Amino acid sequence: MAPKRKSDVLEAETSFKENETEVASAGKSKKTRVDASSSSSGGKAKSKETVQWQDVELDTNSDGTIPVFDYPGDVRRKIRALQTTPGFKVTHWLKEIGNINSNSYGRFMKEKAKTDGAANGTYYAAYVYFERVRIAEGKSKSAGRKQNEIEHPRGLPLEDRRKVWVITGR
Results as ranks from 00 to 15, higher is better:
Val9Phe: 10
Ile150Phe: 10
Tyr127Ser: 04
Lys4Cys: 09
His152Asn: 13
Glu49Thr: 14
Asp74Ala: 12
Asp63Pro: 03
Pro67Gln: 01
Gln54Ile: 00
Asn61Cys: 01
Arg76Asp: 02
Ile66Thr: 07
Ala36Gly: 11
Gly64Met: 00
Val9Lys: 14
Glu13Ile: 15
Ala118Pro: 00
Asp74Met: 14
Asn61Asp: 02
Thr65Pro: 05
Glu18Lys: 08
Arg170Glu: 14
Thr91His: 09
Gly117Trp: 08
Ile97Asn: 03
Val23Ile: 08
Val164Leu: 13
Pro86Thr: 05
Gly87Pro: 01
Arg107Lys: 13
Ser142Cys: 05
Trp93Ser: 00
Glu18Thr: 15
Thr65Leu: 00
Tyr71Met: 13
Ser39Arg: 13
Glu96Ser: 15
Arg161Ser: 11
Lys17Arg: 15
Ser40Val: 10
Ser37Ala: 15
Gln52Pro: 03
Glu96Phe: 07
Glu20Thr: 12
Gly43Tyr: 08
Gln52Ile: 01
Asn103Glu: 07
Thr60Asp: 00
Gln52Arg: 12
Ile66Cys: 04
Ala2Asn: 10
Asn61Ser: 00
Asp116Ala: 15
Phe88Arg: 04
Glu159Thr: 07
Ser142Val: 01
Thr85Asp: 14
Ala143Asp: 09
Ala45Pro: 05
Val51Asp: 05
Tyr129Val: 03
Asn120Glu: 06
Gln52His: 14
Met1Ile: 14
Val56Asp: 01
Trp165Gly: 10
Ala118Lys: 04
Gly121Pro: 13
Val68Arg: 03
Val133Phe: 04
Ile97Leu: 00
Lys48Asn: 08
Ala136Tyr: 06
Ala26Glu: 14
Ala119Glu: 09
Ser7Arg: 07
Pro153Glu: 05
Ser102Thr: 15
Pro72Ile: 02
Pro157Ile: 11
Lys139Ala: 08
Glu13Gln: 14
Asn99His: 06
Asp116His: 15
Pro157Ala: 10
Ala2Ser: 14
Met1Lys: 08
Ala26Tyr: 10
Tyr124Val: 08
Ser37Asn: 13
